[in-house]
Nucleic acid binder design. Structure first.
Lengths: 128, 128
DNA sequence: ATACCTACTTACTAAAATGTTAGTGCCTTA
DNA sequence: TAAGGCACTAACATTTTAGTAAGTAGGTAT
């Protein structure tokens, strides 16, 4: 069983990376850690409340098992989400936001806000 | 020459989409319009100042022609970026942010800020 | 006995995103 | 005369991301 590899394309240097300025690195880093089709949606669910795996699945039914698990594992790896096993029968696994995970709130809110605005702005074009 | 197709997976309904709540749609929409490897970096460059195509390329040299062009076309399609042809010899094409494009600033700043924080937080682990 | 629940893992496939290379036509500089 | 800048376009290849389907192991309900 080989260890799972998580990407860390973080820069080697805090000021610039290969001559790239920090804004570039910051944006890239955010997208790497929080980007992808499902991660922010999962985080949004966990902002509402901590949830068991199966509850999480029910709240985002269009996600596949595979993506749910791999997204959760990446979020856990980056210390945004905490996985807790509750000794019970049947065993329960609870996912919640870590303290650090709370820091994602502004990202979530800004993206949600912008997207909502964008939808409203273009709703006449879209809903023909 | 067939017309270029741009995705619009926008919801058909403002309140919920296939039973999905609005936060879900907003986040998805933002990621669709602004996501991807290069778009926000281009927008960040254009926040600094409007730029000609070749200047833009020079400021983000790791991007390929193809991605630069397709990203710019998508951003133009979504009315975030404005393309202006300057009649000169050789002809110049200027890209700048539209008024609507200015609304992306908070998204950019939040992602930049979070990513920068994340890099700093983990810099001890990363820079072994 | 059968089916289903839980929280996953594995192998495989499909689709989407990104990269590579070459080429366009016009003009300018060496 | 050759090379290079400009703003692209097109064909193709590769990489990355996401989806599908099945299996696991212990337990419960029918």
């Amino acid at each position: 069983m080989k260890k799972k590899q998580f990407k860390t394309l973080y820069p080697r240097n805090i000021e610039t990376v290969n001559g790239r300025p920090l804004d570039y690195c910051g944006i890239r880093c955010s997208m790497e850690v929080l980007g992808g089709k499902w991660k922010l949606l999962i985080v949004a669910e966990l902002f509402k409340s901590k949830k068991r795996y199966s509850e999480l699945k029910r709240s985002i039914p269009e996600i596949s098992e595979k993506m749910m698990i791999s997204s959760l594992q990446e979020l856990e790896h980056h210390n945004i989400v905490v996985r807790t096993v509750v000794e019970a029968i049947p065993p329960q696994v609870e996912y919640s936001l870590s303290k650090y995970g709370q820091s994602v709130r502004p990202v979530l809110e800004t993206l949600f806000g912008w997207g909502e605005g964008h939808i409203k702005k273009h709703s006449d074009k879209i809903f023909h």
